[in-house]
């Protein structure tokens, strides 16, 4: 027995990991591909019927699907762009010692640890156009009233604002970790050479922290594309289809329209988008990797 174990040690040690991948990744993925080529209303009386690529063809012809894709990308890129800029800015401000730094860092982190559905509900109240806090603040500062989530023109941007509020601290924290790890010597020599604060930031901090920034952007981007909880808790895709992202569309198709094949096909397209993004960024990361 023990000899057998010794002989197959390599495989045995890999086995748990392999089993995990097979059952938690490969099987669901394979099943999803199978479902996406079938038509099924989840009926207990009839089994899924094979329909080939017709679910995909129907999606590719549907303006509703393409709008959802566009909205998802818009949401993710705009939200993450703002978060990255703000995150780097705040990290730069916090990257020095001052009184109360620990408290400030903790306070910044509060939105990250809040439950997303609760966050959605709170913001729904803030965004209430008639009696909400949002308009009370805006009008007291002399700005016109906004409809926020109540208009298809502004709803998606209002959601992006929530995402920025919630996740900027996360980006800030990661970037800050990258900045702290940069050695002090280049800064010292730069000061001796007469570099201004902006030059030190532009030519030392930014390039040396860029791998961490990129990782933060990648993680956030994938996360933002996957956003579901906040949208579902506030607008459920409305008004009209104005905030319907791929995720929301897939949920509706599956659990409200009882159209399992359509839902599976949507999630497959979604999978391709997220995967290609991950591959792209991995390649980009290799190119900017630095050593110090």
């Amino acid at each position: 027995m023990s000899r057998w174990v010794d002989k197959h040690l390599k495989i045995l040690f890999l086995l748990p990991c392999l089993l995990f991948i097979v059952f938690m990744v490969l099987f669901p993925l394979g099943y999803n591909i199978y479902m996406s080529t079938s038509k099924w209303s989840m009926s207990a009386l009839s089994s899924p019927e094979f329909v080939g690529a017709s679910n995909y063809l129907m999606l590719f012809r549907s303006p509703r699907f393409w709008s959802a894709v566009g909205r998802t990308l818009y949401y993710a890129f705009v939200a993450v762009a703002i978060q990255t800029l703000l995150g780097i800015g705040i990290a730069q401000m916090l990257n020095r010692s001052f009184f109360g730094k620990g408290v400030a860092k903790t306070l910044f982190l509060l939105p990250v640890v809040a439950t997303p559905v609760a966050v959605g509900m709170v913001w729904q109240m803030i965004y209430e156009p008639t009696i909400g806090l949002g308009n009370a603040i805006l009008t007291s500062m002399g700005f016109p009233r906004q409809l926020f989530l109540g208009s298809s023109a502004s709803a998606l941007n209002a959601l992006i604002f929530i995402d920025v509020w919630e996740w900027t601290p996360m980006v800030m924290l990661m970037v800050l970790a990258g900045m702290v790890a940069i050695p002090k010597d280049p800064y010292e020599s730069a000061v001796v050479d007469g570099a201004t604060a902006f030059q030190r930031f532009r030519y030392i901090t930014l390039p040396l922290a860029s791998p961490t920034i990129l990782v933060a952007v990648l993680l956030r981007l994938i996360d933002a594309i996957k956003t579901f909880d906040i949208i579902y808790a506030t607008t459920k895709g409305g008004p009209g289809f104005a905030t319907e992202t791929i995720n929301i569309y897939a949920t509706l198709a599956t659990f409200q329209y009882y159209s399992f094949g359509e839902g599976a096909a949507i999630t497959m397209c979604f999978f391709v988008i997220v995967m290609s993004m991950a591959i792209m960024f991995n390649a980009a990361k290799k190119r900017v990797e630095v050593e110090y």
Partner: peptide
């Protein structure tokens, strides 16, 4: 009311 396109019966009834 403004923002009526975001209102289900719960919001309408509350208003």
């Amino acid at each position: 009311p403004p923002g009526v396109t975001a209102m289900h019966w719960q919001q309408c009834a509350a208003l």
